[in-house]
Design a protein around this nucleic acid. Structure first.
Lengths: 123, 123
DNA sequence: CAATAATTGTTAACGTGTTAAGTATCGGAG
DNA sequence: CTCCGATACTTAACACGTTAACAATTATTG
């Protein structure tokens, strides 16, 4: 991820915040729990992040009227704009990494990691 | 590492602190830079940790007389004792993991990770 | 030898990971 | 309808990762 961080830093966004924004861009309006799962964040981290991102108008939140416990989150204009600005460069970095490491090895690594974390978690 | 943390938590030591203590136990007295490299820690993290561990008498430090910039670190009695207490249980956990995942896959994973991080780091 | 550069470590500021405890709301059993 | 457990977050406390700026010491160069 060290390859992406400089680019993200220029936009004052962290890796995790970027992940959250991309997820919101893909899925539209979702609740915090789904967001946490999708972005691989724990609830406390997400709570902090939502505040920060909302202050910067990158996202917007509303309480679910049907279930008062749920917090619905969606991307805001500034967030969508940021993603647009970052996209071309991020695609380029991905391509470079894939070129350097090789598609097969990336697949193999992801597969092994999934298997291991799965078995290691299955107590 | 989630398997080790509960055990380490009982001794009020983090994963990283454990790594530092093991390294000191293996290598004897070494300077902070070597320690940081060996334990995969950045200098600022190590600075904080050294203070914490020294307060708890788990390690001891002295300034290098030959080179006044260097800080020499070695394990202290309480630290060695802690390692002794943790060792049997940690060996057991390693065995369980190896049993569950399989030796070959662990090797394959380590090899792939090394290769990938190497290539990904080479600019 | 003096000025400057490089090395070693520290401090500060911020964001995140992790655990535990707390609040608010929902849902179901009695 | 009420109580009570479950769910969805929030808050707090502490440790680490990361970057940048800084201090102290050593090495180099002119």
């Amino acid at each position: 991820m060290g390859h992406f961080r400089p680019m993200l830093a220029q936009h004052n966004v962290t890796e995790q915040q970027w992940r959250v924004l991309r997820l919101l861009s893909e899925r539209g309006q979702i609740d915090a729990t789904e967001l946490a799962q999708g972005a691989a964040l724990l609830a406390p981290s997400l709570t902090r992040m939502i505040k920060a991102l909302e202050d910067r108008k990158l996202i917007r939140t509303t309480k679910d009227t049907a279930d008062g416990r749920r917090l619905l989150v969606r991307i805001d204009d500034a967030g969508a704009k940021l993603l647009e600005e970052v996209r071309p460069e991020s695609l380029k970095i991905y391509e470079e990494l894939e070129l350097r490491i090789g598609h097969d090895k990336i697949e193999a690594l992801i597969s092994l990691l999934n298997e291991v974390t799965d078995k290691a978690t299955t107590r």
